[in-house]
Design a protein around this nucleic acid. Sequence first.
DNA 1: CAGCATTGGACAGTGCAGCTATCCAGTCAA
DNA 2: TTGACTGGATAGCTGCACTGTCCAATGCTG
Lengths: 211, 211
Amino acid sequence: MLISALAAESGVPVPTIKYYLREGLLPPGRATGTTRAEYSEEHVRRLRLVRALAEVGGLPIARVRDVLACLDGATPLTTALGTAHDALAGSPAPEAPADGAEAAGALVADAGWRVDAGCSSLAQLGAALAALAGAGFPVDPAALRRYVRAADEVAREEVDAVPGEDTADAVEFAVLGTVLHEPVLLALRRLAQQHHSTRRFGAPARGEGGE
Amino acid sequence: MLISALAAESGVPVPTIKYYLREGLLPPGRATGTTRAEYSEEHVRRLRLVRALAEVGGLPIARVRDVLACLDGATPLTTALGTAHDALAGSPAPEAPADGAEAAGALVADAGWRVDAGCSSLAQLGAALAALAGAGFPVDPAALRRYVRAADEVAREEVDAVPGEDTADAVEFAVLGTVLHEPVLLALRRLAQQHHSTRRFGAPARGEGGE
DNA sequence: CAGCATTGGACAGTGCAGCTATCCAGTCAA
DNA sequence: TTGACTGGATAGCTGCACTGTCCAATGCTG
Protein backbone atom coordinates (compact mmCIF):
# COMPACT_ATOMS: atom_id res chain seq x y z
CA MET A 1 0.00 0.00 0.00
CA LEU A 2 1.47 3.37 -1.04
CA ILE A 3 0.91 6.48 0.97
CA SER A 4 -1.92 7.61 -1.26
CA ALA A 5 -3.67 4.29 -0.75
CA LEU A 6 -3.17 4.64 3.00
CA ALA A 7 -4.70 8.09 2.78
CA ALA A 8 -7.65 6.80 0.78
CA GLU A 9 -8.13 3.87 3.16
CA SER A 10 -8.02 5.93 6.32
CA GLY A 11 -9.58 9.15 5.13
CA VAL A 12 -6.59 11.13 6.40
CA PRO A 13 -4.99 13.48 3.81
CA VAL A 14 -1.51 12.59 2.56
CA PRO A 15 0.16 15.73 3.98
CA THR A 16 -1.28 14.94 7.38
CA ILE A 17 0.07 11.41 7.22
CA LYS A 18 3.47 12.83 6.37
CA TYR A 19 3.15 15.13 9.33
CA TYR A 20 2.35 12.19 11.62
CA LEU A 21 5.34 10.31 10.23
CA ARG A 22 7.55 13.30 10.98
CA GLU A 23 6.17 13.54 14.48
CA GLY A 24 6.76 9.84 15.11
CA LEU A 25 3.09 8.99 15.59
CA LEU A 26 3.24 6.55 12.73
CA PRO A 27 6.17 4.21 12.06
CA PRO A 28 7.76 4.69 8.61
CA GLY A 29 6.63 2.33 5.90
CA ARG A 30 8.85 -0.44 4.61
CA ALA A 31 10.99 1.25 1.96
CA THR A 32 10.82 -0.61 -1.35
CA GLY A 33 13.06 1.84 -3.17
CA THR A 34 14.37 5.36 -2.79
CA THR A 35 10.98 6.85 -3.52
CA ARG A 36 8.60 4.12 -2.52
CA ALA A 37 7.44 2.82 0.77
CA GLU A 38 4.98 0.09 1.55
CA TYR A 39 2.37 0.64 4.24
CA SER A 40 0.46 -2.20 5.82
CA GLU A 41 -2.93 -2.77 7.33
CA GLU A 42 -1.20 -2.14 10.63
CA HIS A 43 -0.60 1.44 9.54
CA VAL A 44 -4.28 1.90 8.80
CA ARG A 45 -5.11 0.67 12.29
CA ARG A 46 -2.51 2.89 13.87
CA LEU A 47 -3.71 5.89 11.94
CA ARG A 48 -7.25 5.34 13.11
CA LEU A 49 -5.94 5.02 16.62
CA VAL A 50 -4.06 8.30 16.34
CA ARG A 51 -7.19 10.04 15.13
CA ALA A 52 -9.25 8.49 17.90
CA LEU A 53 -6.78 9.57 20.58
CA ALA A 54 -6.54 13.06 19.15
CA GLU A 55 -10.18 13.67 18.28
CA VAL A 56 -12.16 11.49 20.67
CA GLY A 57 -9.66 11.66 23.50
CA GLY A 58 -8.76 15.28 22.78
CA LEU A 59 -5.06 14.67 23.34
CA PRO A 60 -2.48 17.01 21.82
CA ILE A 61 -0.22 15.36 19.27
CA ALA A 62 2.75 15.19 21.63
CA ARG A 63 0.65 13.31 24.21
CA VAL A 64 -0.61 10.91 21.59
CA ARG A 65 3.00 10.10 20.88
CA ASP A 66 3.68 9.42 24.57
CA VAL A 67 0.70 7.11 24.83
CA LEU A 68 1.60 5.24 21.66
CA ALA A 69 5.20 4.91 22.81
CA CYS A 70 4.19 3.11 25.97
CA LEU A 71 1.88 0.84 24.02
CA ASP A 72 4.80 -0.11 21.80
CA GLY A 73 7.38 -0.60 24.51
CA ALA A 74 7.16 -3.40 27.04
CA THR A 75 5.80 -1.07 29.69
CA PRO A 76 4.33 -2.56 32.87
CA LEU A 77 0.62 -1.94 33.01
CA THR A 78 0.52 0.37 35.98
CA THR A 79 3.34 2.49 34.56
CA ALA A 80 1.59 2.66 31.20
CA LEU A 81 -1.59 3.78 32.90
CA GLY A 82 0.42 6.49 34.60
CA THR A 83 1.61 7.74 31.23
CA ALA A 84 -1.92 7.72 29.93
CA HIS A 85 -3.11 9.59 33.00
CA ASP A 86 -0.38 12.16 32.55
CA ALA A 87 -1.38 12.58 28.93
CA LEU A 88 -4.99 13.15 29.95
CA ALA A 89 -4.21 15.51 32.78
CA GLY A 90 -2.72 17.80 30.18
CA SER A 91 0.25 19.84 31.15
CA PRO A 92 2.52 18.56 33.94
CA ALA A 93 0.16 19.83 36.59
CA PRO A 94 1.35 23.45 36.50
CA GLU A 95 0.69 24.39 40.10
CA ALA A 96 -1.21 22.65 42.81
CA PRO A 97 -2.51 25.34 45.18
CA ALA A 98 -1.74 24.12 48.67
CA ASP A 99 -5.33 24.00 49.91
CA GLY A 100 -6.52 22.16 46.83
CA ALA A 101 -3.73 19.62 47.09
CA GLU A 102 -4.59 19.09 50.71
CA ALA A 103 -8.26 18.59 49.97
CA ALA A 104 -7.39 16.16 47.19
CA GLY A 105 -5.10 14.18 49.47
CA ALA A 106 -7.72 14.00 52.19
CA LEU A 107 -10.33 12.84 49.74
CA VAL A 108 -8.14 10.08 48.41
CA ALA A 109 -7.14 8.99 51.89
CA ASP A 110 -10.80 8.95 52.87
CA ALA A 111 -11.56 6.76 49.88
CA GLY A 112 -8.88 4.35 50.99
CA TRP A 113 -7.05 4.61 47.71
CA ARG A 114 -3.35 4.06 47.61
CA VAL A 115 -2.00 6.37 44.95
CA ASP A 116 1.27 8.06 44.09
CA ALA A 117 1.36 11.33 46.01
CA GLY A 118 3.08 13.06 43.09
CA CYS A 119 0.93 11.84 40.25
CA SER A 120 -0.62 14.21 37.78
CA SER A 121 -4.18 13.06 38.44
CA LEU A 122 -3.90 14.03 42.08
CA ALA A 123 -2.49 17.39 41.08
CA GLN A 124 -5.31 17.89 38.63
CA LEU A 125 -7.86 17.03 41.26
CA GLY A 126 -6.27 19.51 43.62
CA ALA A 127 -6.21 22.21 40.97
CA ALA A 128 -9.85 21.62 40.09
CA LEU A 129 -10.99 21.72 43.71
CA ALA A 130 -8.99 24.86 44.35
CA ALA A 131 -10.34 26.57 41.26
CA LEU A 132 -13.89 25.70 42.23
CA ALA A 133 -13.39 27.06 45.71
CA GLY A 134 -11.67 30.15 44.32
CA ALA A 135 -14.54 30.81 41.95
CA GLY A 136 -16.98 30.62 44.83
CA PHE A 137 -18.38 27.18 44.08
CA PRO A 138 -16.79 24.74 46.53
CA VAL A 139 -17.88 21.19 45.85
CA ASP A 140 -20.36 19.86 48.36
CA PRO A 141 -18.52 17.22 50.44
CA ALA A 142 -21.45 14.84 50.18
CA ALA A 143 -21.45 15.16 46.41
CA LEU A 144 -17.73 14.60 46.42
CA ARG A 145 -18.16 11.38 48.35
CA ARG A 146 -20.74 10.22 45.84
CA TYR A 147 -18.32 11.00 43.06
CA VAL A 148 -15.64 9.01 44.81
CA ARG A 149 -17.94 6.05 45.20
CA ALA A 150 -19.02 6.17 41.54
CA ALA A 151 -15.41 6.52 40.38
CA ASP A 152 -14.34 3.63 42.56
CA GLU A 153 -17.03 1.34 41.22
CA VAL A 154 -16.42 2.23 37.61
CA ALA A 155 -12.66 1.93 37.89
CA ARG A 156 -12.78 -1.34 39.81
CA GLU A 157 -14.93 -2.90 37.13
CA GLU A 158 -12.70 -1.49 34.43
CA VAL A 159 -9.55 -2.86 35.97
CA ASP A 160 -11.23 -6.22 36.61
CA ALA A 161 -12.21 -6.33 32.97
CA VAL A 162 -8.59 -6.08 31.81
CA PRO A 163 -7.82 -9.45 30.30
CA GLY A 164 -5.08 -11.75 31.52
CA GLU A 165 -1.88 -10.72 33.14
CA ASP A 166 0.48 -7.84 32.54
CA THR A 167 0.84 -8.33 28.79
CA ALA A 168 1.01 -5.93 25.88
CA ASP A 169 -2.62 -6.70 25.10
CA ALA A 170 -3.65 -5.90 28.63
CA VAL A 171 -1.71 -2.64 28.52
CA GLU A 172 -3.36 -1.66 25.27
CA PHE A 173 -6.79 -2.55 26.61
CA ALA A 174 -6.29 -0.62 29.80
CA VAL A 175 -4.69 2.49 28.31
CA LEU A 176 -7.13 2.87 25.47
CA GLY A 177 -10.04 2.17 27.77
CA THR A 178 -8.84 4.92 30.06
CA VAL A 179 -8.32 7.46 27.34
CA LEU A 180 -11.08 6.72 24.90
CA HIS A 181 -13.86 6.01 27.35
CA GLU A 182 -13.61 9.42 28.96
CA PRO A 183 -15.73 11.16 26.35
CA VAL A 184 -18.20 8.29 26.52
CA LEU A 185 -18.54 8.69 30.26
CA LEU A 186 -18.88 12.44 30.03
CA ALA A 187 -21.47 12.24 27.29
CA LEU A 188 -23.45 9.70 29.29
CA ARG A 189 -23.37 11.91 32.36
CA ARG A 190 -24.67 14.83 30.34
CA LEU A 191 -27.42 12.76 28.77
CA ALA A 192 -28.45 11.48 32.17
CA GLN A 193 -28.45 15.04 33.49
CA GLN A 194 -30.65 16.09 30.62
CA HIS A 195 -33.05 13.27 31.35
CA HIS A 196 -33.28 13.95 35.05
CA SER A 197 -33.42 17.70 34.65
CA THR A 198 -36.23 17.39 32.13
CA ARG A 199 -37.98 15.10 34.56
CA ARG A 200 -37.65 17.55 37.38
CA PHE A 201 -37.83 20.94 35.69
CA GLY A 202 -39.66 20.23 32.45
CA ALA A 203 -38.55 20.25 28.84
CA PRO A 204 -37.03 23.34 27.28
CA ALA A 205 -39.08 25.27 24.76
CA ARG A 206 -37.40 24.06 21.60
CA GLY A 207 -35.23 21.12 22.57
CA GLU A 208 -31.60 21.60 23.30
CA GLY A 209 -30.59 20.98 19.68
CA GLY A 210 -27.03 21.56 18.52
CA GLU A 211 -25.99 24.93 17.13
CA MET B 1 -11.79 49.67 41.72
CA LEU B 2 -9.82 50.60 38.61
CA ILE B 3 -8.75 48.04 36.06
CA SER B 4 -5.29 47.80 37.57
CA ALA B 5 -6.78 47.04 40.96
CA LEU B 6 -9.01 44.41 39.38
CA ALA B 7 -5.92 42.89 37.83
CA ALA B 8 -4.08 42.89 41.13
CA GLU B 9 -7.07 41.45 42.94
CA SER B 10 -7.69 38.62 40.49
CA GLY B 11 -4.16 37.88 39.36
CA VAL B 12 -5.17 38.31 35.73
CA PRO B 13 -2.98 40.74 33.71
CA VAL B 14 -4.55 44.02 32.62
CA PRO B 15 -4.24 43.27 28.87
CA THR B 16 -6.01 39.98 29.39
CA ILE B 17 -8.83 41.72 31.23
CA LYS B 18 -9.12 44.13 28.34
CA TYR B 19 -9.27 41.16 26.03
CA TYR B 20 -12.07 39.58 28.04
CA LEU B 21 -13.93 42.89 28.00
CA ARG B 22 -13.58 43.02 24.23
CA GLU B 23 -14.83 39.46 23.92
CA GLY B 24 -17.81 40.12 26.13
CA LEU B 25 -16.80 37.70 28.87
CA LEU B 26 -16.74 40.49 31.38
CA PRO B 27 -19.30 43.30 31.53
CA PRO B 28 -17.79 46.78 31.14
CA GLY B 29 -17.13 48.69 34.31
CA ARG B 30 -19.25 51.62 35.36
CA ALA B 31 -17.68 54.58 33.52
CA THR B 32 -16.86 57.41 35.90
CA GLY B 33 -15.41 59.57 33.16
CA THR B 34 -14.08 59.24 29.64
CA THR B 35 -10.95 57.52 30.82
CA ARG B 36 -12.05 55.94 34.07
CA ALA B 37 -14.23 52.97 34.85
CA GLU B 38 -15.16 51.48 38.15
CA TYR B 39 -15.05 47.71 38.62
CA SER B 40 -16.82 45.95 41.44
CA GLU B 41 -16.36 42.84 43.54
CA GLU B 42 -18.76 41.25 41.10
CA HIS B 43 -16.14 41.68 38.39
CA VAL B 44 -13.58 39.87 40.49
CA ARG B 45 -15.97 36.98 40.95
CA ARG B 46 -16.81 36.90 37.27
CA LEU B 47 -13.17 36.97 36.33
CA ARG B 48 -12.42 34.01 38.56
CA LEU B 49 -15.36 32.22 37.03
CA VAL B 50 -14.06 32.88 33.52
CA ARG B 51 -10.68 31.47 34.46
CA ALA B 52 -12.26 28.44 36.09
CA LEU B 53 -14.39 27.69 33.05
CA ALA B 54 -11.46 28.18 30.70
CA GLU B 55 -8.76 26.45 32.71
CA VAL B 56 -10.56 23.88 34.82
CA GLY B 57 -13.37 23.25 32.38
CA GLY B 58 -11.09 23.58 29.38
CA LEU B 59 -13.64 25.58 27.41
CA PRO B 60 -12.55 27.82 24.53
CA ILE B 61 -13.26 31.50 25.12
CA ALA B 62 -16.23 31.55 22.76
CA ARG B 63 -17.88 28.73 24.72
CA VAL B 64 -17.22 30.45 28.00
CA ARG B 65 -19.15 33.39 26.60
CA ASP B 66 -22.08 31.16 25.67
CA VAL B 67 -22.20 29.63 29.13
CA LEU B 68 -21.97 32.99 30.86
CA ALA B 69 -24.66 34.41 28.59
CA CYS B 70 -27.15 31.81 29.68
CA LEU B 71 -26.26 32.35 33.32
CA ASP B 72 -27.02 36.04 32.85
CA GLY B 73 -30.23 35.71 30.90
CA ALA B 74 -33.40 34.29 32.43
CA THR B 75 -32.80 30.94 30.76
CA PRO B 76 -34.91 27.98 31.89
CA LEU B 77 -32.72 25.44 33.62
CA THR B 78 -33.01 22.64 31.13
CA THR B 79 -32.21 24.99 28.25
CA ALA B 80 -29.24 26.41 30.12
CA LEU B 81 -27.97 22.90 30.73
CA GLY B 82 -28.27 22.27 27.02
CA THR B 83 -26.08 25.28 26.30
CA ALA B 84 -23.54 24.08 28.82
CA HIS B 85 -23.61 20.63 27.28
CA ASP B 86 -23.07 22.09 23.83
CA ALA B 87 -20.16 24.10 25.13
CA LEU B 88 -18.61 20.99 26.62
CA ALA B 89 -19.21 18.81 23.60
CA GLY B 90 -16.95 21.19 21.73
CA SER B 91 -17.68 21.80 18.12
CA PRO B 92 -21.29 21.48 16.93
CA ALA B 93 -20.94 17.71 16.62
CA PRO B 94 -19.25 17.76 13.23
CA GLU B 95 -20.48 14.43 11.94
CA ALA B 96 -22.29 11.59 13.61
CA PRO B 97 -21.35 8.41 11.76
CA ALA B 98 -24.59 6.55 11.22
CA ASP B 99 -23.65 3.41 13.11
CA GLY B 100 -22.36 5.36 16.08
CA ALA B 101 -25.48 7.48 16.22
CA GLU B 102 -27.57 4.35 16.09
CA ALA B 103 -25.62 2.72 18.89
CA ALA B 104 -25.90 5.87 20.97
CA GLY B 105 -29.64 6.04 20.41
CA ALA B 106 -30.08 2.41 21.35
CA LEU B 107 -28.05 2.87 24.49
CA VAL B 108 -30.08 5.84 25.61
CA ALA B 109 -33.33 4.08 24.82
CA ASP B 110 -32.13 1.09 26.79
CA ALA B 111 -31.32 3.33 29.73
CA GLY B 112 -34.83 4.68 29.61
CA TRP B 113 -33.61 8.25 29.23
CA ARG B 114 -35.75 10.76 27.44
CA VAL B 115 -33.34 13.09 25.67
CA ASP B 116 -33.40 15.41 22.68
CA ALA B 117 -32.56 13.29 19.65
CA GLY B 118 -30.57 16.15 18.13
CA CYS B 119 -28.56 17.21 21.14
CA SER B 120 -24.81 17.57 21.00
CA SER B 121 -24.17 15.10 23.82
CA LEU B 122 -25.89 12.35 21.89
CA ALA B 123 -23.88 13.24 18.82
CA GLN B 124 -20.70 13.19 20.85
CA LEU B 125 -21.56 9.82 22.29
CA GLY B 126 -22.21 8.49 18.80
CA ALA B 127 -18.96 9.93 17.50
CA ALA B 128 -17.00 8.43 20.39
CA LEU B 129 -18.55 4.99 19.98
CA ALA B 130 -17.97 5.07 16.23
CA ALA B 131 -14.36 6.16 16.66
CA LEU B 132 -13.74 3.41 19.17
CA ALA B 133 -15.22 0.82 16.86
CA GLY B 134 -13.32 2.22 13.90
CA ALA B 135 -10.06 2.08 15.80
CA GLY B 136 -10.71 -1.56 16.59
CA PHE B 137 -11.71 -1.13 20.23
CA PRO B 138 -15.47 -1.43 20.42
CA VAL B 139 -16.76 -0.82 23.92
CA ASP B 140 -17.87 -3.95 25.68
CA PRO B 141 -21.68 -3.77 25.96
CA ALA B 142 -21.55 -4.88 29.57
CA ALA B 143 -19.07 -2.12 30.39
CA LEU B 144 -21.29 0.33 28.58
CA ARG B 145 -24.25 -0.69 30.70
CA ARG B 146 -22.18 -0.18 33.81
CA TYR B 147 -21.22 3.27 32.57
CA VAL B 148 -24.85 4.07 31.94
CA ARG B 149 -25.80 3.00 35.44
CA ALA B 150 -23.00 5.02 37.01
CA ALA B 151 -23.87 8.07 34.93
CA ASP B 152 -27.51 7.75 35.81
CA GLU B 153 -26.80 7.57 39.52
CA VAL B 154 -24.38 10.46 39.50
CA ALA B 155 -26.62 12.66 37.38
CA ARG B 156 -29.75 11.88 39.36
CA GLU B 157 -28.05 12.87 42.56
CA GLU B 158 -26.64 15.99 40.95
CA VAL B 159 -30.00 17.11 39.64
CA ASP B 160 -31.65 16.32 42.97
CA ALA B 161 -29.05 18.48 44.66
CA VAL B 162 -30.01 21.53 42.63
CA PRO B 163 -31.61 23.89 45.09
CA GLY B 164 -35.14 25.19 44.80
CA GLU B 165 -37.06 25.74 41.65
CA ASP B 166 -36.07 26.98 38.26
CA THR B 167 -34.33 30.16 39.44
CA ALA B 168 -31.18 31.93 38.37
CA ASP B 169 -29.38 30.44 41.35
CA ALA B 170 -30.46 26.96 40.39
CA VAL B 171 -29.31 27.53 36.82
CA GLU B 172 -25.93 28.72 38.01
CA PHE B 173 -25.57 25.78 40.36
CA ALA B 174 -26.51 23.26 37.72
CA VAL B 175 -24.49 24.70 34.86
CA LEU B 176 -21.32 25.23 36.85
CA GLY B 177 -21.67 21.85 38.47
CA THR B 178 -21.92 20.26 35.08
CA VAL B 179 -18.97 22.07 33.61
CA LEU B 180 -16.60 22.35 36.53
CA HIS B 181 -17.11 18.93 38.05
CA GLU B 182 -16.07 17.13 34.89
CA PRO B 183 -12.34 17.35 35.62
CA VAL B 184 -13.03 16.30 39.20
CA LEU B 185 -14.87 13.21 38.05
CA LEU B 186 -12.21 12.35 35.50
CA ALA B 187 -9.39 12.80 37.98
CA LEU B 188 -11.21 10.63 40.51
CA ARG B 189 -11.72 7.88 37.96
CA ARG B 190 -8.03 7.93 37.12
CA LEU B 191 -7.00 7.84 40.75
CA ALA B 192 -9.34 4.94 41.35
CA GLN B 193 -7.91 3.17 38.33
CA GLN B 194 -4.44 3.70 39.67
CA HIS B 195 -5.46 2.27 43.02
CA HIS B 196 -7.13 -0.80 41.59
CA SER B 197 -4.50 -1.42 38.98
CA THR B 198 -1.76 -1.24 41.60
CA ARG B 199 -3.77 -3.64 43.69
CA ARG B 200 -4.12 -6.09 40.85
CA PHE B 201 -0.91 -5.70 38.89
CA GLY B 202 1.52 -4.29 41.42
CA ALA B 203 3.16 -0.90 41.77
CA PRO B 204 5.29 0.52 38.95
CA ALA B 205 9.03 0.66 39.42
CA ARG B 206 9.31 4.34 40.22
CA GLY B 207 5.84 5.65 40.91
CA GLU B 208 3.87 7.27 38.18
CA GLY B 209 5.14 10.76 39.07
CA GLY B 210 4.46 13.70 36.79
CA GLU B 211 6.83 14.48 33.91
C1' DC C 1 -3.47 75.68 38.18
C1' DA C 2 0.39 72.75 36.02
C1' DG C 3 2.24 68.51 35.00
C1' DC C 4 2.87 63.87 34.50
C1' DA C 5 1.78 59.09 35.39
C1' DT C 6 -2.22 56.40 34.49
C1' DT C 7 -6.43 54.99 32.16
C1' DG C 8 -9.51 53.02 28.68
C1' DG C 9 -9.74 51.87 24.13
C1' DA C 10 -8.16 50.51 19.50
C1' DC C 11 -5.31 47.69 17.02
C1' DA C 12 -1.34 45.21 15.68
C1' DG C 13 1.80 41.60 16.93
C1' DT C 14 3.29 37.07 19.24
C1' DG C 15 3.67 32.14 20.14
C1' DC C 16 2.00 27.84 19.71
C1' DA C 17 -0.47 23.86 17.73
C1' DG C 18 -1.88 21.39 13.96
C1' DC C 19 -2.00 20.98 9.87
C1' DT C 20 -1.35 22.30 4.53
C1' DA C 21 1.22 23.70 0.42
C1' DT C 22 5.23 23.86 -2.35
C1' DC C 23 9.29 22.09 -4.12
C1' DC C 24 12.41 18.62 -5.66
C1' DA C 25 14.81 14.83 -7.60
C1' DG C 26 14.18 9.96 -8.07
C1' DT C 27 11.55 6.31 -9.77
C1' DC C 28 8.23 2.99 -11.66
C1' DA C 29 4.41 1.62 -14.54
C1' DA C 30 2.83 2.44 -19.26
C1' DT D 1 10.99 7.21 -23.06
C1' DT D 2 7.95 9.62 -20.44
C1' DG D 3 5.30 11.61 -17.18
C1' DA D 4 2.54 11.04 -13.15
C1' DC D 5 3.52 9.98 -8.66
C1' DT D 6 6.49 9.24 -4.49
C1' DG D 7 9.04 10.27 -0.18
C1' DG D 8 11.36 13.75 2.09
C1' DA D 9 12.36 18.53 3.33
C1' DT D 10 10.89 22.96 4.27
C1' DA D 11 8.01 26.83 4.39
C1' DG D 12 3.47 28.76 5.05
C1' DC D 13 -1.19 29.04 6.81
C1' DT D 14 -5.11 29.33 10.20
C1' DG D 15 -7.08 29.83 14.58
C1' DC D 16 -6.75 30.74 19.30
C1' DA D 17 -5.49 33.18 23.34
C1' DC D 18 -3.31 36.35 24.64
C1' DT D 19 0.29 40.48 24.83
C1' DG D 20 2.42 44.87 23.46
C1' DT D 21 2.20 49.43 21.63
C1' DC D 22 0.19 53.65 20.96
C1' DC D 23 -2.87 57.51 21.90
C1' DA D 24 -5.53 61.35 23.67
C1' DA D 25 -8.03 62.27 27.81
C1' DT D 26 -7.86 62.50 32.35
C1' DG D 27 -7.44 63.11 37.26
C1' DC D 28 -4.66 63.05 41.27
C1' DT D 29 -0.34 65.55 43.17
C1' DG D 30 1.73 69.31 44.32
